[in-house]
């Protein structure tokens, strides 16, 4: 079985932002001012933008390390356009902030691969937790030593299976399709599924399910994210499908699990 580290284990280790630059893209003056106040109080360096053009300009001039993005910017869903731009042109992590929680919008924003999603109304602790988690994940992704550890953890697998496991690791917050895993492995469907089960011990579907549930358990234990936000972060577009999956895995609903194990 995979021995890769659980990123959430590190969540509450102190991550010192040391004036990390955060760009807030929000056209509501009250909300952007509030977020700025919260972030500055927590030692972040903050710039505010209220449009697509301003955001793109600030990528060069301010050089943010993370972006908080309102989806319905200027009432034209400009935030999703920015998300698409960031997804295709840069590796900057971004977190959506929105009052939308309908399935259509969630599906739409998932395609732009945000690192998080924060629903309004939010609290200070929600913003800070989401940012710290995103920054930690980015840092971990860039850390050569840790990458080497991950490589070592994967060393027991053949190269095609290793590529599939890495793909799952990178895309754990999306819906992962078996066809995509087959494509990255370079093998035929039948051969891939048989070899995956032989090397990893479970089918690709079971493996992805286990990984998502591990991450969900960790988030429920260690963060203040709502169940809906955790469901979204793991690629589920509805609370009910996530809850059903979680009950199947742990025998408890997400909220009961949190009550039982929350520190």
């Amino acid at each position: 079985m995979n021995t890769k580290r659980n990123l959430l284990d590190f969540h509450f280790q102190s991550y010192d932002p040391m004036k990390t630059k955060v760009l807030v893209v929000e056209d509501d003056k009250l909300i952007s001012f509030e977020i700025k106040s919260i972030l500055e109080k927590n030692n972040f360096d903050v710039n505010i933008c209220d449009s697509y053009a301003c955001c793109i300009k600030n990528l060069d001039t301010f050089q943010p390390e993370l972006i908080l993005l309102d989806i319905d910017l200027n009432k034209k869903f400009e935030g999703i356009q920015i998300g698409s731009y960031l997804n295709s042109k840069s590796d900057l992590p971004f977190i959506y902030i929105t009052g939308y929680t309908d399935v259509e919008t969630l599906k739409r924003i998932q395609t732009t691969k945000p690192v998080g999603y924060l629903s309004k109304p939010f609290r200070e602790i929600d913003i800070i937790n989401n940012i710290e988690l995103a920054l930690y994940n980015k840092k971990a992704g860039l850390d050569d030593v840790e990458s080497q550890e991950v490589d070592e953890a994967y060393s027991q697998y053949s190269k095609p299976i290793k590529r599939a496991l890495e793909y799952i690791d990178t895309n754990i917050n999306q819906e992962i399709k078996t066809d995509e895993l087959i494509r990255v492995s370079g093998w035929s469907k039948f051969h891939f599924i048989r070899e995956f089960a032989k090397e990893v011990g479970v089918t690709p579907y079971q493996y992805i399910f286990e990984q998502k549930m591990k991450l969900a358990s960790s988030k429920l234990k260690n963060t203040y994210q709502s169940v809906r936000e955790i469901a979204f972060d793991l690629g589920y577009t509805s609370n009910s499908s996530f809850t059903n999956a979680f009950v199947k895995h742990s025998g408890l609903s997400p909220s009961n699990f949190r009550k039982k194990y929350c520190r």
Binding site: I31, G99, F122
Partner: peptide
């Protein structure tokens, strides 16, 4: 209903923002 729910949550966020800006 979708738009009203979205708007209402934004309005609640504004109420929270007003209180937080008061402190700040």
């Amino acid at each position: 209903l979708d738009q009203t729910l979205h708007r209402f949550k934004n309005n609640l966020q504004t109420q929270l923002s007003l209180m937080n800006i008061e402190s700040a």
